[in-house]
Amino acid sequence: MLTVTSPPSSPPRVSPPTATQPPESKAAETGVWMGIATISMSFAALTSAMVVRQSGAPDWQHFQLPPILYFNTLILLMSSLTLESARRRITAAAGQVGSLVPPVQRLAELYLTLTLGLLFVMGQVVAWRQLAAQGLFLATSPSSAFFYLFTALHGLHLLGGLVGLLYVLHRLRQATGPVPRTALGAATLYWHFMDVLWVYLLALLTIRV
């Protein structure tokens, strides 16, 4: 790789950096909004593919969705509530004590959210196993193919959200510097979107499959 390094010297006309803390960048939140846009577009494309594939196809096989999905939905909605409550509590506490990191016990709701998230993913895996036990696999019918595809892609994106939450938790636990409000807000926003996306997918699957 051919690269040339930049010289360390500064241009002459600029003054030295200021000592004040710059405001926290909103980029994380913008990034999540962009992520929401692109993920929505992907699922919209897959939805249109599903509609096209189903129309006039004799091999489309209707089947009963595993009931555990509704339980999983409740779990996921609950996780959003606990996360939102955690976010509000941490942000409010940070405002009170002058932008300091909250004590670890205030993070309990975040741990609860993580647990619920994992529980949801495990529940989805159980749903897969129940379908497989009925003899419905990925290639059995286009309906089952779309079911596995939608749940798997949503699950992967949700795991990404879990990693994001872990990152925020890690920063909160470091107990130095100001509360990473934007990062927490961004992770929360993404997590809520995972909820909305799942409710949409569940409705779509209920209607179509």
């Binding site: 962009m34 993920i39 577009m41 992907s42 593919a49 990925l138 290639a139 193919a145 892609l153």
Partner: peptide, 28 residues
Amino acid sequence: LIAFAVLMPACILLILDRVAGTSFFIPA
């Protein structure tokens, strides 16, 4: 941001048709 978000799932469907035995694009 929008265009590659559509090609990406299309490629996934194509890969599934090729390796997993699904029939998204292959007629009877």
